[in-house]
Nucleic acid binder design. Sequence first.
DNA 1: CCACCGGAATGAATTGTTTCAATACGCTCG
DNA 2: CGAGCGTATTGAAACAATTCATTCCGGTGG
Lengths: 336, 336
Amino acid sequence: MAGIKDVARQAGVSVGTVSNVINRPEAVLPDTRARVLAAIDELGYVRSESARQLRAGRSRIMALLVLDMGNPFFVDIARGAERAARDAGLGVMVCNSGQSQEEESEYLGLFAEQRVCGVLVTPADATGKNLEAFARHRIPYVLVDRVAASTENCAVSVDDVRGGMLAVGHLVSAGRTSVAYVSGPGDLHQIRDRREGALAALAEAGLGPEALVEIPSDRLDVAAGRDAGARLLGLVPRPTAVFCANDLLALGVLQALYAAGVRVPQDVAIVGYDDIEFAAAAAVPLTSVRQPAVVMGRMAAELLLEEADDENGGHQHRSVVLQPELVVRASSAAPR
Amino acid sequence: MAGIKDVARQAGVSVGTVSNVINRPEAVLPDTRARVLAAIDELGYVRSESARQLRAGRSRIMALLVLDMGNPFFVDIARGAERAARDAGLGVMVCNSGQSQEEESEYLGLFAEQRVCGVLVTPADATGKNLEAFARHRIPYVLVDRVAASTENCAVSVDDVRGGMLAVGHLVSAGRTSVAYVSGPGDLHQIRDRREGALAALAEAGLGPEALVEIPSDRLDVAAGRDAGARLLGLVPRPTAVFCANDLLALGVLQALYAAGVRVPQDVAIVGYDDIEFAAAAAVPLTSVRQPAVVMGRMAAELLLEEADDENGGHQHRSVVLQPELVVRASSAAPR
DNA sequence: CCACCGGAATGAATTGTTTCAATACGCTCG
DNA sequence: CGAGCGTATTGAAACAATTCATTCCGGTGG
């Protein structure tokens, strides 16, 4: 493959001049420039990013590590981040931790090797050990969909406690007095905060914590939702409403209930979380708590860029909290 | 950031020895190795991937360029490719062309600069110009969801003509004699092949090409489906069945029909394409043509790896064609 | 006529790793 | 005791770019 030296030889100039043509064309005489460009074209020269990176010390790539790319919510976050990165002339490397601490740790190691200019991460590891270890590399990172645990980094999140309150408050005010909470891995903050919000909403309505029946789940996908739905059917007495930790679970629960002939929302109301595009198209359109995913991805990327570009220590770490919004659809209409 | 030289100094050995500890630990005496490992740990050393790449001439990353990451079908392809790549110790960089030739070209340029070890691509550019230009860099690439145009590369695809036949054959045999085809960008092969299959199925049933009413669409997402649904409603006479080029369109059409009070499948039957997870959870569960997306991603990655690892020219380019499968659900039940 | 000046081009140094020929060292055998 | 051998280690070259101090050159002013 042709290198800068080959181009220099072909054009009859030095390598420094070729480099200047590429990076500071105005510093080169027009006819020299033309000769170099012709040589580049002729040889099909493409500069080597690794060589540039080696010299620069870091790459022009931002990493994004999410919990599950199969969840459209994270795809939206990626979209937002990608747009912001592209505006800054950077690439984004999107990776999946699949909620596994090991995978997360493995990917963080990969990012360090790649000397990425920064990392956006939805932590899978509640202990924060992985990120603590990563901080050593002095590569900036921003927590996504999670409040900052320390003042050492930026974070962008959505108020999950409030989201839980919106969801369950809505169910309670529609006359449902016993609510199942289809949760997920207990070490995820989002899951715990949404439960807390749910309990707060019940308390506000004068209901005790026993009014919330938790149906745990180790994954957060449609199949897990079907399992949860099956377990819900076995509960006696059966709750009259279900709040699901995300829309994938909600779609799965809906399928299970539908298959068992339980009517939604007459017999059981369902509220999901995220308001993914498919929530509105479900068998019974899903009521859901909408999160500004694209905005979150974009803001996170912007915070990261600000930190990464900061030469003189002027960057102030910030923790941005966005607000969720309840979108009411058929799945949670009042009974009767 | 600590480099291999710092580690060597700290451990009192040469850089070559440190490199050996990392890459061929068995070639180093246990106590030397221990000393080096201690130094690595102490300094928090992480080897620089760019420096390795520079030396190796290519990176350990495989690129995947898809048409739309918002479509779960492509997410599944990515999953399959990722798994295969990981088995081989490679990373995957997933990018979105968004069906834009410019973006595709831009990304291919990026891949060349990055010296990726290979590219999996779902072409957005029907003319093949982009890939033709890319071939110059002698980086192997595999076409995904597309048959090979030449013998210059491998390809993995699904028989779209047969998929179209399955879909429309099913509709016709259920008594529908006039079918709308909600298509997409006309320069996509998939779209054309599916139409061809649809026409073949009609012909087989003794119906002419006028039985297929095309509703063109420039995008392939849910919103475009809603637009198409609205246009379908305006057709006189209104077709009694719709075949959509993918499930996102089908979900959008379903929403539009539902909002207008048109009954599915009584008034209009719908068949989608891809059988994404959300098809089964739709307002009316969608009949769809299932594609083995994960398998396709995995096979493509494996073909690419075979080509990339091939030193002695033993690689034979292959074009693998997989078969689709019709999954019948409520959206296409017979009328009455 | 020489010194100086400024813009253009040069070329060597630098970046962090891998690889490989060369070396060093301890051991055995003659 | 020295030659020969095999293993462990070394050190320098190579990779492809960027950067920057230096050189070159034509033109101008003293």
